[in-house]
């Protein structure tokens, strides 16, 4: 063979190559680190700090931050009942992330499944699914959540349910658009010529190609759902005390705004940092998963690349 052609490097499959590309984008690296920390808090927080976070200490009411005389747990200050804020934030990570993860997972699975059907099948069912998506989209979602949660009781399961339903159209539309495009690609036609079944075409040929887009969207949507849950909790129709989430903590601190700003400030910061990290990571994913853009990250790890050659 004498073909003259520039060959691209193999797809990075090893964890090491992924880590190297993560390191190449410093912001994304720290975002990933922070998310890991949040995840650990969610998994281990209630188990490690559960008691400390609920221990009332009336002498330490609204204790100011950056004072470690009471112990490291009080470094961010204490709330109106003298409970250490840092410990409470760590413990609240579990509810906050669990609700978001549940809603994203639920809506992503249902939405993409419906999207696959709507995009691949030419039957009437596809039409009905799209109409359903439009109807959900035209609902004022927050209002709906308020009514539903006011009627049912605002438990974790109900909040996950309401949030999941409102996010289904996002995945439905994206998946359908992707499927409509991928379905017409030559390799799908080639599979049809070979006599591949519809199931094989959808799961072996279409879904793997659409998956990167869906993962990127889900990362972004995780941030969105977290904000929505915080808003509900803030309005008092989300998670109810004594359970805590970051949004609820902001709401609880609101009445002490003028005297003890830290009650609302720190949990809010936790929300911002988590959603920001998710956004940064999603941006990074988009570049990594796009073969035309990936060189920007791969270049930086190498010596022959110019260090200033572009960033995000």
């Amino acid at each position: 063979m004498t073909d003259t052609k520039i060959r691209a490097t193999p797809k990075p499959r090893s964890p090491l190559a992924w880590a190297a590309m993560l390191w190449a984008d410093k912001l994304a690296f720290f975002a990933a680190l922070f998310l890991l920390l949040a995840l650990l808090s969610a998994l281990l927080g209630p188990w490690l700090l559960g008691d400390l976070a609920t221990k009332q200490n009336l002498r330490g009411r609204n204790a100011p931050p950056f004072d470690v005389t009471r112990g490291w747990a009080y470094v961010l200050g204490a709330d109106a009942l003298g409970r250490p804020l840092l410990a409470r934030i760590v413990v609240a990570a579990q509810n906050t992330l669990m609700v978001a993860a549940g809603a994203v997972l639920g809506s992503a699975i249902i939405g993409s499944a419906l999207g696959l059907v709507a995009g691949y099948s030419r039957r009437r069912a596809a039409q009905w699914i799209m109409r359903l998506g439009d109807v959900i989209m035209s609902f004022p979602s927050l209002l709906l959540a308020v009514i539903v949660l006011y009627m049912l009781e605002p438990s974790v399961a109900n909040i996950v349910l309401v949030l999941a339903i409102t996010r289904i159209p996002v995945y439905l539309r994206t998946t359908r658009a992707e499927v409509l495009e991928i379905r017409e690609r030559m390799f799908v036609q080639a599979a049809r010529v070979m006599g591949a079944s519809d199931r094989r075409i959808v799961f072996r040929h279409i879904l793997p190609v659409a998956l990167p887009t869906l993962v990127t969207i889900a990362t972004l949507d995780f941030a969105f759902v977290m904000l929505a849950e915080s808003s509900l909790s803030f309005l008092g129709i989300g998670i109810q005390p004594p359970e805590i989430t970051w949004g609820l903590m902001v709401a609880q601190g609101r009445q002490y705004l003028t005297t003890a700003w830290w009650l609302s400030f720190w949990p809010g910061l936790a929300i911002i940092l988590t959603t920001l990290s998710l956004n940064l990571l999603s941006n990074w994913l988009r570049i990594v998963l796009d073969p035309a853009q990936r060189w920007r990250l791969e270049m930086k790890g190498r010596k022959n690349g110019r260090p200033s050659a572009g960033s995000l």
Binding site: F234, I272, N279, L280
Partner: peptide
């Protein structure tokens, strides 16, 4: 990105 990440109530 920071702006898009910030909860408006906060």
């Amino acid at each position: 990105l920071v702006g898009a990440s910030a909860p408006d109530f906060w």
